[in-house]
Amino acid sequence: MTDDRRTVLRGRYLSLGFGELFAAIVFIGVAFVSALPLLERPSDALAFWSALIPLLVILVQAGVYWLLARRWVKRGTMPRGLASAYRGFRVLDAALILAGLVGIIVWFPAHPFAAIGIPFIWLLGVVEYVNYFVVRLAYPPSEWFQRIGEGRTPRLMQDVRAARGN
């Protein structure tokens, strides 16, 4: 692979990394400015955080992955220790998503907006988890219906698996 291709990928990874981190910051901002003030009961807020925390954790992990992957793209493989960490994140994040669902059920919100919005936020976390750890879901809109059925392995998991050969 040429240095030009590496440069293009490094730029894309930079954009993806900062994009995921920015998304996490936006979700936090919207939570404090728009969502939490609408929630009347403390249990509604607990349900909200049960949904949001798994999403935030996955977005931050993904952002950090893309930024770090700029180091080895087209030049090497993910360091073994980092690959081990992301294998652990895969299990930890699944447990966090499950705990989030339990929290939503236990503290199911009374506010109608929250009763609809909170499960949707949790579902976004599930989609992000699947996209990074199970099967690639992110494609350009014009190609999405054609490519989603391919069942491609996410780039993160390709890097984790390639690190075993280090």
Rank of each mutant, 00 (worst) to 15 (best):
T2E: 11
T2G: 13
R6W: 03
T7A: 11
L9R: 13
R10D: 03
R10W: 01
G11E: 05
S15M: 11
S15I: 12
S15F: 09
F18P: 00
F18A: 01
E20M: 05
L21Y: 05
L21S: 02
A23L: 14
A24C: 04
I25N: 02
V26N: 06
F27M: 14
F27W: 10
F32A: 10
F32G: 13
V33F: 04
S34G: 13
S34Y: 09
A35L: 15
L36K: 10
L38F: 00
E40L: 12
P42R: 04
S43L: 07
D44L: 13
W49M: 14
S50G: 14
I53F: 03
I53P: 04
I53A: 14
V57I: 15
V57H: 01
V57Y: 01
I58C: 08
V60E: 02
A62I: 02
Y65T: 02
W66V: 05
L68Y: 00
R70F: 00
W72N: 06
V73E: 00
R75H: 04
R75I: 10
M78F: 01
P79G: 06
R80Y: 03
L82F: 02
A83V: 04
G88P: 05
G88T: 01
G88E: 07
G88C: 04
F89Y: 11
R90K: 15
R90H: 06
D93R: 05
A94D: 05
L96W: 00
I97A: 07
I97G: 09
A99V: 13
A99Y: 00
G100I: 03
G100P: 05
L101K: 03
L101S: 08
G103D: 07
I104G: 06
V106M: 04
F108I: 12
P109M: 08
P109I: 08
F113A: 15
A114F: 00
A114H: 06
A115F: 00
A115W: 01
G117E: 05
F120N: 05
L123C: 09
L124Y: 03
G125E: 08
V126L: 15
V127R: 09
V130S: 06
Y132K: 10
V134K: 05
L137R: 07
Y139C: 11
P141G: 09
E143L: 14
E143N: 04
Q146C: 01
R147Q: 15
R147G: 06
R147S: 15
I148Q: 08
G151D: 13
G151W: 05
R155P: 00
L156S: 08
M157S: 02
M157C: 05
Q158H: 02
A162L: 12
